[in-house]
Amino acid sequence: MQTGARVWKFGSGLQAPLLYRSGVLYAASKTGAVYAINASNGKKVWASQAASQGAVQLVTDGERLLVNNGDIQTYGLKDGKLLWRVHEENGFIQPIVAEDGLVLGQNSVSGAYTYDILHAYDAVTGKQLWKAANHDLPAAVKDGTVISQREGTLVEAVDLTSLDILDGKTGKVLKTVIYNPQNVNLKDQGPGAGNFPAWYSGNRIYLNAGNKLYSYPADADPAKTTRDTYSVESVGFRDLVYAAGPYDERILFTNNSGLYGVKTTDKSTVYYGGLRNDIARFDLIGHGLYIIQTDGRLIAMHLCTAIPVVQLKTGGNVFGPSLSVNGMIIVQSKGKVQAFKEPDSLKMK
Results as ranks from 00 to 15, higher is better:
Tyr247Leu: 01
Arg238Ile: 09
Asp219Met: 12
Glu249Cys: 11
Lys212Cys: 02
Leu207Tyr: 14
Tyr214Pro: 08
Glu249Asn: 14
Tyr216Ser: 04
Asp248Leu: 12
Ser215Gln: 08
Ala209Gly: 13
Tyr216Met: 05
Asn211Ser: 12
Leu207Phe: 13
Arg227Cys: 00
Asp239Asn: 11
Gly245Pro: 11
Pro217Asp: 04
Ser234Phe: 04
Val235Gln: 14
Tyr247Arg: 07
Asp219Arg: 10
Asp228Ala: 15
Ala220Arg: 00
Phe253Lys: 00
Ser231Cys: 03
Leu207Ser: 07
Gly236Arg: 03
Ser234Pro: 00
Asp248Gly: 11
Glu233Cys: 06
Asp239Thr: 03
Ser234Arg: 10
Ser231Glu: 12
Lys212His: 11
Leu252Met: 13
Asn211Met: 03
Ser234Ile: 03
Val232Arg: 00
Pro217His: 00
Glu249Lys: 15
Leu213Gln: 04
Ala223Gly: 08
Thr254Cys: 08
Phe237Gly: 04
Phe237Lys: 13
Asp228Thr: 08
Asn211Arg: 11
Asp219Pro: 07
Asp239Arg: 06
Ile251Cys: 03
Glu233Pro: 02
Pro246Asn: 11
Ala209Trp: 05
Asp239Leu: 05
Lys212Ala: 07
Ala209Asp: 05
Ala223Ser: 12
Tyr247Cys: 00
Phe237Gln: 13
Asn211Lys: 07
Glu233Arg: 12
Asn208Pro: 02
Thr225Arg: 08
Gly210Ser: 09
Asp228Gly: 01
Phe237Tyr: 11
Val232Ala: 13
Tyr216Trp: 06
Leu240Met: 14
Tyr230Glu: 06
Val232Ser: 15
Lys224Ala: 01
Asn208Cys: 10
Pro222Phe: 05
Val235Thr: 09
Ser231Gly: 09
Glu233Asp: 12
Pro222Asn: 05
Thr229Trp: 05
Ala220Ile: 14
Ala223Ile: 06
Glu233Val: 04
Ala243Tyr: 00
Gly245His: 03
Leu213Thr: 01
Ala223Cys: 07
Arg250Pro: 10
Asp228Tyr: 12
Thr254Pro: 05
Leu252Phe: 13
Gly210Arg: 10
Tyr242Ala: 00
Asp219Phe: 03
Leu213Gly: 02
Arg238Tyr: 01
Asp239Glu: 10
Gly210Asp: 05
Asp219Tyr: 09
Gly245Lys: 07
Ala223Lys: 13
Phe237Val: 14
Glu233Asn: 15
